[in-house]
Simulated scan of single mutants.
Amino acid sequence: MTDTAVMHALYPLAEFPVLAALASPHTTATKLDGRACLHLYVRALGDIDWLALTSREREFMRTLGLFTICPCCGASALVRDTRDHVLSRSDGTPVTLTALTGDYCNACGEVILDGAEGQRVMDAAGELHRR
């Protein structure tokens, strides 16, 4: 349960670029309360560019309680965790990336990574492809 003080506080849109983009078609306000912010994020879950989020905006979303909802399956099953992730070479040989931190869905298996961890996966996949 998210703290009511968090939900009733006002947040400047200028500090959260993705939120500002989500809000701009609906309001000219420069600040929104936590309830409105959460509503906009939830409404756009499938359209959010997760790699475009700043770490500050991601933490804000977590504060609002958003990162309990999986954007892929909609289940309230996301948990922040550090796990090993297995990629496969073109010949099927598994390669393990260790200690990948992200928001993991215990319902569908999806993982939401922030920019640095996502880049680790992309770099490893590119390296596997080049071999």
Rank of each mutant, 00 (worst) to 15 (best):
P94Y: 10
G46W: 05
S88E: 15
R56S: 13
A44R: 02
H39L: 12
S76Y: 10
A77I: 07
S90Q: 15
G74N: 07
W50G: 05
L78N: 05
R131L: 15
P17Q: 02
T101H: 11
V86P: 08
L38I: 03
D123C: 11
H26Y: 12
R89F: 01
G74E: 08
F60K: 02
I69M: 04
E117G: 13
G118Q: 13
A116H: 08
E57C: 04
A52C: 00
V18C: 09
F60E: 03
T54W: 01
L22W: 03
A116L: 12
T28V: 12
R120Y: 03
L38K: 04
C73A: 12
E59L: 13
I69K: 02
L13Q: 05
V86Q: 15
P17I: 05
H26E: 14
A116Q: 07
T28C: 09
L53M: 02
R131H: 08
E59S: 12
P25E: 01
E15I: 00
V86N: 08
L13P: 13
T93Q: 13
L45F: 11
L51E: 11
L19E: 00
L45A: 12
D114I: 02
W50S: 02
L66P: 04
S90T: 12
A29L: 13
R80W: 09
C105I: 01
E57V: 04
T93C: 06
D33C: 05
T30D: 11
E59P: 00
L128S: 11
M1K: 07
Q119F: 06
C37M: 01
S90M: 10
A29I: 09
D103T: 00
P12H: 03
L97P: 09
A36G: 03
I48D: 05
P94C: 07
A124K: 14
A23N: 00
C108Y: 04
K31Y: 06
Y41K: 01
D114N: 13
A75T: 08
C108N: 10
V6Y: 06
A124P: 06
T82M: 12
L10S: 14
V86L: 10
V6M: 13
G126C: 15
I69H: 05
H129C: 13
D49C: 11
I48F: 06
A44D: 09
T30E: 14
R89L: 10
W50Q: 02
A9R: 11
P25C: 02
R58M: 12
A14I: 08
L66C: 06
T28F: 00
A124E: 14
A52T: 04
C72Q: 15
D84M: 07
N106E: 15
R130H: 14
C37K: 01
L51K: 10
E110S: 12
R83G: 11
L113I: 08
W50P: 01
R58G: 09
T101Y: 01
T63N: 07
Y11F: 12
L66G: 03
T54D: 04
T2E: 05
I48H: 07
H85D: 11
V42N: 07
A77V: 06
R83S: 08
L53G: 03
L10A: 14
H85V: 10
L19Y: 02
C72R: 11
G46E: 09
D123L: 14
